[in-house]
Design a protein around this nucleic acid. Sequence first.
DNA 1: GTCATAATAGACCAGTCGATCTATAACAAC
DNA 2: GTTGTTATAGATCGACTGGTCTATTATGAC
Lengths: 208, 208
Amino acid sequence: MARPRTFDEAEVLERAVDLFREQGYESTSIPELITRLGICRQSLYNAFGDKRGLYLAALERYGEREVGTRLALLEADGSPLENLRTVIRGWAALATQCPGDGCLTVSAIVANGDDPEALAIVERQVDRLEQGFRSALARAQSAGEVKAEASPARLAGALIATCYGLGVLSRLPGSGPRIGDAVAVMLGLIDDAASHDTAPISAPPDEL
Amino acid sequence: MARPRTFDEAEVLERAVDLFREQGYESTSIPELITRLGICRQSLYNAFGDKRGLYLAALERYGEREVGTRLALLEADGSPLENLRTVIRGWAALATQCPGDGCLTVSAIVANGDDPEALAIVERQVDRLEQGFRSALARAQSAGEVKAEASPARLAGALIATCYGLGVLSRLPGSGPRIGDAVAVMLGLIDDAASHDTAPISAPPDEL
DNA sequence: GTCATAATAGACCAGTCGATCTATAACAAC
DNA sequence: GTTGTTATAGATCGACTGGTCTATTATGAC
């Protein structure tokens, strides 16, 4: 006899993600949320408990989407090393064009230093992505695409650090060149790790 | 006949820096500020105009201090390349021990995406530090400490990106290994850029 | 149809925010 | 001393915050 939920919770969460990305958590008020989400105040509280519950749900969804698509790219058919290059290039493209809205994961890390629950969510996402990098490198190594002496774990950690560095710098208007430098060096690291007998498919391995 | 300022503005600003680092801008209220700063409400407004004025002044001071000390290290006597290594290692040490308070520059970038004035302050600081990296590398190159084919600008940009990535990851409890990886790779990049005939003073050039 | 719930609209709450104002005390300049 | 300014203490302000409440409508389950 009950009546099922009528509005699409996933759609509502997407809109919450957008708004939180634009304004951050604290700067986004309930009135703004109900306007953007297209639901009324009480429905928001019924569905998500409170503002923080909505935020955590949005954070979870954002990470699921962003990390998920990149893991899919990494695990796609073909050369794992080239897949990794594709992910790095795509990440850089996002950071460069930067449509004003930065990475929600980065802002969550910075803004929730005292909230273990929020930190746990993003930590899990960062871990998954790093593990994806590591697995791709390990698979490349098994396939002989990467030198035996290379360390997938170390390279993956360094790539993750630099990627999230881009997530910060992309918010500075004048960071275009810096981002380009970082990407070139990351691709150079990947090329250096690659076995020399397999000719790199990407751009020539810029010296340095 | 006027009466000069009695409290030490510099000291007050240092305390404001600490508080903003701990709690962020929005989460820090005026009552908290006046308690921590040790001055009364009206004095705060007289000296800094308003809360944002105090924040911008604190931001400026923080950057001046942090970037200043690192530039001094970079320009110290001795090998510019080794100076650069010292700065990187010191940065990593800060990120690793992480006494709970993160880099104010990072949080300012993330939290003030819509405030050109705040962004301009941090942009200037990031620029100065990157320029310091670049100059040190260029000096090392002139001295034959770095290969002629290496690009100081590119390497400096990449190092900056990774350093600010550490500024984000240091806020995640489980990032110790990642930070270690990133530092090892950064030092490896420096070693690779170094001329091969000059034996690296640092740890053996970890492969990859 | 009946019933239970979802959803809406909007009033309402106590609490906090940043900021201003008044009044008073302290103190350097003259 | 007088004067002008700084600093303090604290009341006060309007605006806004997140959250709760009531009343009403809409709609699927039975």
